[in-house]
Design a protein around this nucleic acid. Sequence first.
DNA 1: GTTGAAACACCCTCAAT
DNA 2: ATTGAGGGTGTTTCAAC
Lengths: 155, 155
Amino acid sequence: MNKTDEIDRRVLDVIQRDAALSQRDIAERVGLSQNALWRRLKRLEELGFIQGARTRLDAAQLGLDLTVFVMIRTRNHSVDWAEEFRKHVARIPEVSEMHRIGGEWDYMLKVVTRGMSGYDTVYRKITTGFDLDVVTGLFSMETMLDDRPLDVFGG
Amino acid sequence: MNKTDEIDRRVLDVIQRDAALSQRDIAERVGLSQNALWRRLKRLEELGFIQGARTRLDAAQLGLDLTVFVMIRTRNHSVDWAEEFRKHVARIPEVSEMHRIGGEWDYMLKVVTRGMSGYDTVYRKITTGFDLDVVTGLFSMETMLDDRPLDVFGG
DNA sequence: GTTGAAACACCCTCAAT
DNA sequence: ATTGAGGGTGTTTCAAC
């Protein structure tokens, strides 16, 4: 990691786990004064380590009870087609991630939606207007670990 | 969705996109007074819709430049074994998600780590001490969409 | 649901060390 | 790097409507 030391990592780890902490509390946890912490936070923001904060919602409580990983093989492998496909998928709010992957498949999407009928709707949206070779879903039966913090240390 | 109306959904959508907004700003966006918004937020927290806030960090800037989806087939399918395996995987900080899935594979893990050498280390950690039948990695060549907000509306 | 106000906590900046 | 302090902003809780 460039231009950061151990204390910076600890700061980043604390705030990535809880964005609601006051600067006073963060400072106490990492062993800095509130003033010194403020300057570090400002620097870390300017350097681009910090990308804003999000409130986490309970997906199940919102009725979003089904997670499906969608594997896609395409016939077209041009860069332009890929970007068009990305824009198309970006318009589907149930898609939480999209990766271009290597090997047997070309794309992998993570879909979080409302039951099988919700997935059916998403499936239709994904495939509409694009020439996809194979589309198959891997259904999550149980989310055992979800959305954990990044491994700020180590490495 | 239970016990929530359209305004609640709008509140949740606003705060899931930006946890740093003031109550005054949120209230203005959803068309409430700050006071009324405060009561709604408190209620939404009590009902469990809100699960706290996280600061988002730039993975690439932290050196976390490789995402791998690890597909695992096991020989043991008992509930106890699954829980032991979950605890084992939960101790590996590079694993950001873990799902028990149906079909050809048994588990799918999302790993975010530092290059191929980082993945090799994680691979060894995952497989140490557990009798896994097949372990294969799907490597993300490009993250096209990442960590998008939940689909609060729709459905 | 609303406005207004009071009490308090927090953020940001500056001065001094 | 630290403490201390001041002004501005945000949060929380009232009272009154």
